[in-house]
Design a protein around this nucleic acid. Sequence first.
RNA 1: GCCGGAGUAGCUCAGCUGGUUAGAGCGUCGGAAUCAUAAUCCGCAGGUCGGGGGUUCAAGUCCCUCCUCCGGUACCA
Length: 662
Amino acid sequence: MEKFERLLVTAALPYANGYIHLGHIAGAYLPADIYVRFKRLCKEDIIFICGSDEHGTAIEISAMKEKVTPKEIIDRFHNANKQAFADLGISFDIYSRTSNDIHHKTSQEFFMNLYNKNLLTTKSEKQLYSEKDKRFLADRFVEGTCPICGYEEARGDQCENCGSNLSPLELKNPKSKISGDTPVVKESVNFFFPLEKYQKELEKWIKTKKDWKANVKNYCQGWFKTGLKDRAITRDLDWGVKIPLEGYESKVIYVWFEAPIGYISATKELFEAKGTPDKWETYWKDKKTKLVHFIGKDNIIFHAIVFPAMIMAHGDYILPENVPANEFLNLDGGKLSKSKGHGILVKDVVKAFNPDLIRYTIAANMPENKDADFSWEDLQNKNNNELAAILGNFINRTVVFAKNKFDNKVPEHKGKERPEVFKYIAEQKKVVEDCINNYRFRDALNEIMNIARAANKYFNDSEPWKVIKEDKAKCGEIINDCLEICHTLAIAINPVLPYTSEKILAVLNKDNSDIIWENIGKPCLKAGSALGENAILFPQLELAAAKEEEPKEEDNLITIDDFKKVQLRTAVVLKAEKVEKSKKLLKLRVKCGGREKQIVAGIAEFYTPEEMVERKIVIVDNLKPAKLMGLESQGMLLAAKIDGKLKLVGIDGDLPDGADVS
RNA sequence: GCCGGAGUAGCUCAGCUGGUUAGAGCGUCGGAAUCAUAAUCCGCAGGUCGGGGGUUCAAGUCCCUCCUCCGGUACCA
């Protein structure tokens, strides 16, 4: 019935300039993985493609900052992210990288295809060129004096001091960030993709996509409304895919153009490894392939508009059938992005928790329609009240019963009919299918859990612990039913909780030959066969433990910019007196430059007021004022403390008050 | 500034093109049960759907306005 014969699923290529965090997982990778695992259970022909996006300015800048090669940066993040995905059970068929030769070739072919059709336009623009570096300097490779505020370290694209948006040509005294060389202005020719030309076709195409999520369609509408603009597809950069034309040696293909082609390159690589190097074409060229891009909402423009336009221009490849984009995941209300220090990195969190618990918590609260919240408390509640109580408990009570009363074997089931609960399970199977096929993973998970809820109800209502006293065979049938439901649960939860699925099989001492979606609700166990060793699937988590185990960012290093926020200054104490009724506080009047301020400091146990007067100290000048014992403190002084002893930080030699400390 | 999204039970979220008593999960409370990881099962309670105004026989759902939060984009050059 299905008009598609095979599926090609992609998940956004993570940028190899940072570690992936839970927000990424919730946005694209987990929904994609659930979808793919489900389809695999349904025995559909499906491949799941991903890889690292490894080019672009940001990576080159990171490399420069760390004084390493870009290769070192991308290797670091590629390997770390690949491992993190694997640990979380994200089951890509291939996790490739755009630095591979095959990708460079594929991108260049794509570029040449458009070039040969005369689809690309060129535009010449004035750019800064460094003779010494022998290259044009991209915005962020230039530093100079801001023409607006006079700040001397303004970047080519923006002045961090006054916030102005700049172009490198506006900077006074521009310098190359690479060599310090003074660049000259030179004309640079770049290629442009005529996105504008494809607007009509794109609009028409998207209109036919009735089942796309509203957020995706709305977002596209917004872009159509303002009008699509042609986009530069080459850049004056070193790190990237070279342009296969003479005279463009110092340029590369712009990363936004080349990265999505990575899906194609990775597919080629996958089938090359499988020994069927031509087979990738079926997946990218046959209209009977259903292409689905899983992405976060920040990527909608590229997957719903730009890349499809590129494909239209190219002509050989299929367009995506759907682009399910999720919103963002917030942490305790705050943003879950690294920039705000809220990132929960996958590599850390998989060390502290059962990957399935993470998958469950995120899936149960997936940001499908709007930004959602993640909290550690929620993680704990989900573990204890849902996974342990409903799912884990059912498996456990069933297996323990079989172990104690039936010699740890599957009891016989002589009755022809299975109880009502099996009908319900068969219905749920369809409900879950419907949810997943429509990318409603949160609902899907709830419906799957409803099977476990029904299972517990069946156990309760059947009261095997009573029945066994009168009719052991009848009781055996009940337990047989429950064991079969355990196996069914192993199938049903498999897309979301793959590790738990395996654990259930181990407990049942069953291989995975019957882990097929069609087998949901069907008896698969052999009467009389021995069960395995029981295991607690989800041990209780304590809130305190959940908080303690909260993984910290490995590097709590701060940048020089972070440090610069703290204004440290020397000050001299003018007056000092004890704060009444306080053991620890001294009220100080200090002079700092031309200003005086009051600082309430917790040093009374170590310094008398008399000792403090006229003393030179170091203070945090821009600390937000706070009230201590009703007195306002307009800063804090620096002191070192160890083993209960406290010593003020002083100045070496003589220095006036008000001096900057750094 | 402009554009878009969001504001629904204690918490996290569903509510399609307006239409019977606004839903789910978890939590709370009451009861049943005791095979099981203080786990299960049954039941009750909880919302004037951000504020205000309007359209309509009828609005969480449409229109206007205001408040709060989040994105995008522009300008301040």
